[in-house]
Nucleic acid binder design. Sequence first.
DNA 1: TATATTTCATATAACGTTTCATGAAATTTT
DNA 2: AAAATTTCATGAAACGTTATATGAAATATA
Lengths: 336, 336
Amino acid sequence: MKKENSAPTMKDVAYEAGVALGTVSKVVNGLPVGDSYRIRVEDAIKKLNYQVNSYAQGLKANKTYTVAFLIPNTQESFFASLTYYINLALVKRKYRMLLCCTDFDLNQEQEYVTMAQQNKVDGIIGLTYNPNLVVEENTPFVAIDRSMGPKIPCVASDNFAGGQLAAEKLADFGCKNVAFLRIGSSLSNEPNKRKAGFENGCLSRGLNYEMKILNDGDSYEEFEEFLSSHISGTKLSFDGIFCVTDGLAYSILKTLKSLGQKVPEDVQVIGFDGTRFFGNKDYVCSTIVQPLPEIAEMCVELLLQENMPSKPPLVCLPVSYCYGGTTLEVLSGRGK
Amino acid sequence: MKKENSAPTMKDVAYEAGVALGTVSKVVNGLPVGDSYRIRVEDAIKKLNYQVNSYAQGLKANKTYTVAFLIPNTQESFFASLTYYINLALVKRKYRMLLCCTDFDLNQEQEYVTMAQQNKVDGIIGLTYNPNLVVEENTPFVAIDRSMGPKIPCVASDNFAGGQLAAEKLADFGCKNVAFLRIGSSLSNEPNKRKAGFENGCLSRGLNYEMKILNDGDSYEEFEEFLSSHISGTKLSFDGIFCVTDGLAYSILKTLKSLGQKVPEDVQVIGFDGTRFFGNKDYVCSTIVQPLPEIAEMCVELLLQENMPSKPPLVCLPVSYCYGGTTLEVLSGRGK
DNA sequence: TATATTTCATATAACGTTTCATGAAATTTT
DNA sequence: AAAATTTCATGAAACGTTATATGAAATATA
């Protein structure tokens, strides 16, 4: 007799169907069972509305089908999208995400890694900022945008190519004197290569360029001063600006407006990330788009792949340029 | 002897410390144990780096410390923030979130509810759009922004007061002829009250108002036509617009620009939600701010509260107005 | 000192699965 | 038709916890 007031178990199903416990387990897991048995079990499952207890499964299999995802927050557009696609990729494989928001806090990152291990997650995907993060050997870990040593694979956009592409596009669109703006803080490792790529692109296309890179403590006002100091009369000496993220570009666009500069007529702006707001089809600015769905798929793939002979230390995925209203598109080849 | 290659268990700790299994359990759970025993166990835990298996705990307690969160996606700003705060409130109580993105899809909502039950979550918090969603009686459920019957509590902003506040603010800032714009689709139930509140506010403050409400199939272009048709010469007949969400306001601002209307000089705009981009301190537009941290806390509170005699059918939380550059603030009282 | 009481570590039985050795029934072979 | 083989449902053990009954040691009472 089934206990009152509690979810039915395999035992209840077995009793109802008049078969053994193991037979129910086989049916539930799609293992071969005689047809007459299968039907009786399936009927009993329906009748009792039985649902497997995945925690008992997890205990037995020593597997939780849960992956911890470490991310500063889910509010900034880039993080929000990444969260969405990582979750999608996990769900597709019957895994689920344990969301761990670290708020850029180094201690929280470490706490969450430890907690993730306590909860016996099957692995961790992390976009972290703590260079000294300690990850147990036995916990599979995939890093995003940050190399964490030879044993931990890292997935990132091709940041170097992205920087280069930004320079090339600005050159294509007629720029001669360009600037690279970067906020230092939360951007180390892979995204750093945007700078090197941009420099490389400027050199190969003969662009004059200047860089303004803020350090951790610096305030945004330094950008305003930097831009103001490059105005003679009413004219800004730059005709193109590459911002290290769309978020920065969004702020710079406001600043340019307050400085009386028209975008894109006076100065063109390219950002990085591929941000759109409110499910809008338009980008926030002309931008180098990161392939988030592919990044997410790759992270999950690398994490869950069982027998990978040698995990690649770094996977670079291709970026692309997209128009977003802040550049002077050359209309060659389209429209006419 | 401990098995190779697998995480240590309480048994291993007990052997190491030379005590019984139950004693280890007590130490782990902070139950009274003699000091000499406690010390030996604590040392063994440290030595073996033991970590409790929460899935075994869950199996035993028939409790998972997991809550499913149903949300269309985590990309749109409002959803992203809500996800952040709900997760925060859950983590604070040692719970974790199972993130379920439904993409506004009615079938997915139902699938996730069923799946959530399979995974034996302790409850569900849901921002859903399917009026026929079937939720098992025994699964605690808290709805956001949508009443789902008398047995399921609903948490929402005070949408009526918000609409009213928008009208009052527009009146305060000198508007005479205002419009209410709404996209029909994904906005039923609670957020509907924004319209009624706005009407009420307009009436009590003597504002002329018009409404343009799109239905599910309608395209955004209808708003453009609506606004165009209210322009005589170069002058828009509205001097204030209340948009049902910041997302709509964001689009309308672009449209107004393309129609040659200056915001806020020619026409003032107020949105709803309190959206900020990129962790920026500025709001996207002047807006009625939803109290997301409080909404999240309330949802989690209601969900996890064990012995609530009668769950309230609807909890309304107060909204506030915030300046975001698209209104003509009356500077009374500040600055001078 | 002998008995009654308290204290507290121990050992065991669950929780709901999966897996594997067991053996009965059905089939094939001689 | 008897023996050898295959098929396949069965039932018990195990996964890592928690909770409860047990009884030995220590303390308090007479």
